[in-house]
Design a protein around this nucleic acid. Structure first.
Lengths: 121, 121
DNA sequence: CAGCATCCTCCGCGATACTG
DNA sequence: CAGTATCGCGGAGGATGCTG
């Protein structure tokens, strides 16, 4: 059924875009080592704005990849950690990261060649 | 060295974003079955604009993932196919796609639960 | 057919300021 | 500390029209 096929594609893409999302990956990688609080994540992920960290964490929580725990103290403290589902993502994402590292030189060379080809036009 | 570490991260992310890029993945998946010409790709990838297909193909060609072959006929004909490097991407990307398919129900449920939690606030 | 150039729109995201 | 609310810009990307 075409309809079902499309739905699958859309859903799959939606999830794949997670991996392409800069901040989501950074958060997941950081949480791979264990729970962290909001401010620690903010400090660990260089360049992220408070807003984006909040939005990213909300998205991951919403998808069941991250668990949010609030300690009702003053000042408030909130811990974030990967759920079991979130942890299963680490492996395939790492595979891709390794691919990236492995083939980086090739890509670099391809870019230079492409550059030269374009320049000599 | 911190500098090197950052460079690695940036480079890796740059490559990972490829996977998050909607159109790039679609192109790669379509080319996994063999060479295709421009118009065939355009028809196969529903919803893509001519502009984005061109840009996406240029990017992939630039990175050495796709090879572009021009047949100087009239009307012109251009074939695109995965390079060997491009083909090595299929496996890790598929792994991720399978992860997405496998865990979709869980994610779906997490979203519904999250929705309910937000609604009852 | 394949593709470049141009215009124009939308919204992702950062910066900033305020709250419990 | 851990957010939410608001504003503003820059860039991604669709629509359209023109070429070899």
């Amino acid at each position: 059924m075409t309809r079902r096929y499309d739905e699958d594609c859309v859903a799959t893409r939606e999830i794949l875009s997670l991996v392409g999302d800069k901040w989501s990956v950074m958060v997941i990688v950081n949480l791979a080592g264990g729970a962290m609080r909001f401010s620690d994540l903010k400090r660990a992920i260089e360049g992220i704005s408070q807003r984006m960290l909040t939005l990213t964490l909300r998205g991951l929580e919403r998808d069941g990849l991250v668990k949010r725990t609030v300690f009702p103290t003053t000042p408030p403290r909130v811990d974030y950690e990967l759920t079991r589902l979130g942890q299963t993502l680490i492996e395939p994402v790492s595979a891709l990261a390794i691919w990236a590292q492995t083939h980086r030189p090739e890509i670099e060379r391809a870019r230079e060649a492409f550059q030269r080809a374009a320049g000599s036009k």
